[in-house]
Design a protein around this nucleic acid. Structure first.
Length: 583
RNA sequence: CGGGACAUAGCGCAGCCUGGUCAGCGCGCCUGCCUUGGGCGCAGGAGGUCGCAGGUUCAAAUCCUGCUGUCCCGACCA
């Protein structure tokens, strides 16, 4: 493309609404423009990068036997009502009525539609397994769109669905996807990792998220650098370091006055009892019933785990009034001793401890010498939130906790949707069995954003060669010098003939403007043509990532550029070949 | 939905408290000259219902009310 007539509206200044790096750079580089909150137009540069990303996804899906579909984005209410998700999805679903007043919606995901095709068409185990996918627009009316393309209300997702006769088949399809996803991210040049995850509203058993570490991300994950253990913080656990218990003063707990001392820290100072030797007592309303939650003093409750344990999403911290009503004391003085009328859930970290300090259920009093299972009984579960530096459950090394962008998520659905929609096949024994399904999603724009988050410097984007909108940019320092222009024209023709995507900056701009734009939009290789060098028969080739110009005889430029790109791509592809399969 | 902020030219902003030569600046854009290795210089020029609707006032970008939109912090997800 000749840049003089290419639509690449770069911005010198940072638009006020952008505060994460990828948003700023995609806006400044002329990749995207906002139409409404969480709704973006993709300009030509973004479209090019996204087409490359989609092509990589397509190749890897095809490699595992996926068959590409294209399903409607507009759905009748019936299929969603059949699975109950017409209600479950709530305000996140864009809803509309057709001219007859029938309820319709914009597709958020396609389990229902793909499953109804499977129900109507798949009859026999002999037709299985199937992997069906599409790359298509999804609509989700997010409560809070943010961070440019990272959280939007309309986006393109590659979603795929696997259909198997049994669990073993699902395991295989799941593993194929896991490996395909690894290859996709690697080929897009991302430094990614997979974490164990929570299934959320999708339902199902096993689930992994694919993550790219970035402060712009919204998920917290715990990861062990030593053994590779990684999990979403909603699910992560840790190995407990031994805590020294002291001898209690006597067999029974001792009540002590603690006037005005409420927090764990205040009690630690006032009574000289370190936080790990205290029991933190929380009251949660679970399905509207007050429930006691016991944590070690230095631990934080993880609400996602509590949800999983109680099996309900209807939980919240009790209000001050509810606490007094249930416990007869204020929040700062609660404890489990003597509580008979409430369910008591305790974190595993309290099991086997002795001589703990906790609230006395009388405002401004605590009790000491409390031993779990002696002075109170509770059901033990893993309820704590892992913190940075906690011990890896696998190997005992220190875990790191950091933010990440979720670029993909895979689920073992089981028969949730096939049961709801009646999708069955006959198995080998002639029995009708529900199809066992998996569901797998990748956000294309998130890959783009994550790549920008991960690959940039103070001048702009440094695109991985595999997803860059152009391979190479030709920058003649002046368009007035006919020798420069002739040479640039020739490079332009040669490089295109060599199969490269070439951007030719033929604008009558000063060199600084061209260099800055080239750096901003992140094209991997730049050819610079200057008068003095050209007089010696030389041009310059600069790899964006390395940022240093290398002189090159004019006749060798095409070869040099082709080789440089091949090297960049080979480095990326090597990582894709090197992936570790799901065990 | 709860909390916080913002809305003035394509972009970034000032002006608002203290109503009245306040429709202003920088960048970008157009014309000409000049310049040509990291966002040149000079001269001239175009461009704004001050988010929308009410209200107060002799007078509103400025004060009041309502609405809309956008961004940020919390509950959801690719």
């Amino acid at each position: 493309m000749r840049l003089s007539h290419y639509f690449m509206p770069t911005l010198r200044e940072v638009p006020a609404e952008a505060d994460v790096v990828s948003h700023v750079l995609l806006l400044r580089g002329g990749f995207i423009r906002q139409l409404a909150a969480g709704v973006y137009s993709h300009l030509p540069l973004a479209q090019r990068a996204l087409l490359r990303i989609r092509q990589i996804i397509r190749e890897e899906m095809n490699r595992i036997g996926g068959q590409e579909f294209h399903l409607p984005a507009i759905h009748p209410a019936e299929v969603w009502q059949a699975t109950g998700r017409w209600e479950v999805m709530g305000d996140n679903m864009f809803r509309l009525k057709d001219r007859w007043g029938r309820d319709m919606c914009l597709g958020m995901t396609h389990e229902e539609v793909f499953t109804s095709i499977a129900r109507n068409e798949l009859r026999s185990y002999r037709q299985l397994p199937q992997i069906w996918y599409q790359i298509q627009t999804k609509f989700r009316d997010e409560p809070r769109p943010k961070s440019g393309l990272l959280r939007v209300r309309e986006f393109t997702m590659k979603d795929s669905y696997s259909f198997d006769v049994d669990r073993d088949g699902l395991d295989t399809s799941y593993r194929l996807h896991y490996d395909a996803y690894c290859r996709i991210y690697a080929r897009c040049g991302l430094d990614y990792f997979a974490v164990e995850a929570h299934s959320g509203s999708m339902g199902g058993s096993q689930s992994h998220e694919f993550m790219v570490r970035s402060d712009a991300g919204e998920d917290l994950v715990a990861r062990c650098a030593a053994c590779g253990y990684a999990a979403n913080l909603e699910k992560a656990t840790n190995r407990l370091a031994p805590v020294a218990d002291t001898e209690p003063a006597g067999p029974e707990p001792v009540r002590v006055a603690t006037p005005g001392q409420k927090t764990i820290e205040e009690i630690a100072n006032f009574l000289g009892v370190p936080a790990p030797n205290q029991i933190k007592t929380l009251v949660y309303m679970v399905d509207s019933k007050p429930t006691l939650i016991l944590m070690r003093g230095d631990h934080q409750l993880n609400e996602a785990k509590l949800e999983a344990v109680t099996g309900t999403g209807l939980l919240r911290p009790a209000t001050a009034e509810e606490i007094v009503a249930a416990m007869g004391a204020d929040a700062g003085s609660l404890g489990p001793v003597g509580v008979q009328h409430l369910t008591i859930l305790a974190d595993e970290a309290l099991r086997g401890r002795r001589n703990m300090t906790t609230g006395a259920n009388a405002t401004d009093f605590h009790i000491q010498g409390v031993t779990p299972d002696v002075h109170f009984t509770a059901a033990y579960h893993d309820l704590r939130t892992v913190a940075d530096g906690d011990l890896c459950p696998g190997c005992g090394a220190a875990l790191g906790v950091f933010k990440s962008i979720e670029v993909g998520h895979i689920f073992k659905l089981g028969t949730k949707y096939s049961d709801a929609l009646g999708a069955t096949v006959l198995n080998r024994d002639g029995q009708s069995v529900p199809i066992v399904m998996g569901s797998y999603g990748i956000g294309a724009e998130r890959i783009l954003s994550a790549a920008v988050e991960q690959c940039h410097d103070d001048k702009g984007i440094i695109f991985p060669a595999t997803i860059a909108p152009f391979d190479v940019i030709i920058v003649p320092v002046s368009m007035e010098d006919s020798r420069l222009v002739e040479t640039a024209d020739r490079f332009y023709a040669e490089l295109r003939a060599a199969g490269l995507e070439v951007l030719y900056d033929d604008r009558p701009e000063r060199p600084g403007v061209k260099f800055n734009d080239a750096d901003l939009v992140g094209i991997p290789v730049r050819i610079t043509l200057g008068t003095k060098k050209l007089a010696q028969g030389l041009a310059e080739v600069t790899v964006r990532r390395e940022a240093k110009a290398v002189d090159c005889p004019v006749g060798e430029v095409t070869g040099r550029v082709t080789a440089a790109l091949a090297a960049l791509r080979a480095e990326i592809e090597a990582r894709a070949r090197d992936i570790r399969s799901l065990q």
